[in-house]
Design a binder for these strands. Sequence first.
DNA 1: GTCGACATGAGGCACGCACCTCAGATAACT
DNA 2: AGTTATCTGAGGTGCGTGCCTCATGTCGAC
Lengths: 367, 367
Amino acid sequence: MAYLKGAPRSLAATSLLLTQERVETVARPTVNDIAKEAGVSLATVDRVLNGRPGVRKKTVEKVNEAIRRIGYVRDITAANLARRREYHFVFVLPESDSLFLQSVRDMVNEVAELSRLDRTRITILPVPAHDPHLIAARLGELATVAVDGVAILAPETPPVRDAIRHLKEQDRAVVTLVSDQPNSDRDHFVGVDNVMAGRTAGALMGRFLGPGRHRVMVLVNSMQARDSLERRFGFDQVIAESWPDIEVLPSLEGRDDMDYISSLLPRALEQRGAVDGLYVLGAGNREVSRVLKSLGLSQQVTVIAHELTESTRRGLESGVVDAVITQNVGHIVRSAIRVLRATCDGTPIIEAQEKIRLEIVIRENLP
Amino acid sequence: MAYLKGAPRSLAATSLLLTQERVETVARPTVNDIAKEAGVSLATVDRVLNGRPGVRKKTVEKVNEAIRRIGYVRDITAANLARRREYHFVFVLPESDSLFLQSVRDMVNEVAELSRLDRTRITILPVPAHDPHLIAARLGELATVAVDGVAILAPETPPVRDAIRHLKEQDRAVVTLVSDQPNSDRDHFVGVDNVMAGRTAGALMGRFLGPGRHRVMVLVNSMQARDSLERRFGFDQVIAESWPDIEVLPSLEGRDDMDYISSLLPRALEQRGAVDGLYVLGAGNREVSRVLKSLGLSQQVTVIAHELTESTRRGLESGVVDAVITQNVGHIVRSAIRVLRATCDGTPIIEAQEKIRLEIVIRENLP
DNA sequence: GTCGACATGAGGCACGCACCTCAGATAACT
DNA sequence: AGTTATCTGAGGTGCGTGCCTCATGTCGAC
């Protein structure tokens, strides 16, 4: 049974490891050690550590000096235990039926379940995808309730940016997800470099198409979102640099409307003549697969898409989609939580761990 | 300063979140709740929880039943605090100057530093790469000292397999790294599916070379190691399935000897005539780059390699290497530690988090 | 020199749990 | 029935920290 546990192993080690390292199980310094070192009482150390008033400046310095000398680091788990601390984080996510956002929601729910064991409550706050003012209003409400941190996935707009500023003023930890909000005061961005994502898509398109003249069509949801813009930018950049023989046609905007895509795409494909490549910047992969299959083009056209979802996965498996550029949703959600917690605790984060890798998925390395 | 922390926020929430969720901050059940629920004393609950003797079978069941009913989960951080528990893990790593192993060592050292804050001591135990009996002997020593868990990176051999069995009998947590040891009793394998890695390499080779007849050379360190065998197997498999026009030449074995590679490779390239692709299964990337450049072939030959290291990175940047199939070393090390700890605690692991993704790196998504 | 304001120390209780002791209860034996 | 062996309860102490109270100390201003 999971809650059972063997008796702790004796600490009496004997050979090799004891010779290798000089057994410096020097117990971590505690608040008591600080008190001794600084020549003050525990109560004073406590006041200094927790920024409570009633300590002379000189004494504060004496204590801090002692902390520095003995290398004290607060034991956060013990502190949280004593304080009965609970973290409460809110994920602000657009109401949208895109498969990607659905997977983010699922993942947040899954992680939320497990996080209760770490004294962490996680709530999802759904917001309308395309109403910046309403999103900002909801964020404003968050600044008035007992929330420790907020993770936001929303398009970059001035009202939202200001709302984030306000959250930071109210001392909440804030991270942005997937699409960044630069110039807001968010503590951290959790997601990939979208210009790099576009460049990667472009390079794969170039390599897969091979030498010679080719025409590539780009399908995008909306050219409003920062992430789409950045991807398109990177894509064009790398094609211009390295595959000048490839002609990239203007973006086709699907506007989040799947029916519209279904009607737009076949017409465009017929009008524009032979197209060798299709770059799907955002949503709409289900429709793309359907249309290409119905036109009998699924093997002729090289398709590069973003975000590994049910539909792009099926696309890869069936050979309609050639490569998917994606970011690991589980990693994003867990990273967001780690960063929020670290921000609350004032502890540093492990940069390398929190960096979201840009993943390339083809049929053969489908997880 | 990192050890300072703001006053905890008031718990008095007001609007939205309180209405949204029924504020079920139902405090987690504690040992006291178990005692009450089971109608026994705390001491008895403690005896049951920690498997100490002196409790009638019937009472044990009564307690376990109560635990089940109220959904008690042990608070491991509090338990570890009370128990003054320290985790002690050992990474058994081959002495080898391969860049990949060097990066593993570096990462372990880096993580070890940070882990001390979590009551976790981590030690590296270097072993000779090609002496299975000595490796097994060292593992045997580990079974006699106060070590909670062992992470092993070593070739699969019977002595090592038996040593792992013995470690498990001595109640140590054991994970294998990078190259698995199936049929040993290891608790978990931390690494990628190497057949899949080979398949991915093959598919990229096929797509990058494009249609037509091509010849591909395979360079390998040693065909002893399980990971190399599996990669080669996957590579051949996918080429045979999907690119029958590609001829894969027999493996060239470098035998961990860089000078040997340097002399072997140019001769092979000249003898065998036009080669369009080179698949580098293991070490030797520095030499490959040098040889190809000196022969003026760096742009003609499509090179696919494994493991992102300093040399493959430079290869990608300079265009000599076209793609690298890799596994995130940081992820591997951190995952190993999480799994070891979970095994010690008897808690479940998050499968998705511990699954090591197979990463494809090209110049454009170089991290 | 007295007073008030502030600084400090001593100590306690709590958090959730581990681990110990010892007396008393119960059950299983002669 | 008495004796022994086995259970069980009550209660304590401690882990590292938070947070509270209350008594005492120190300082500067009047």
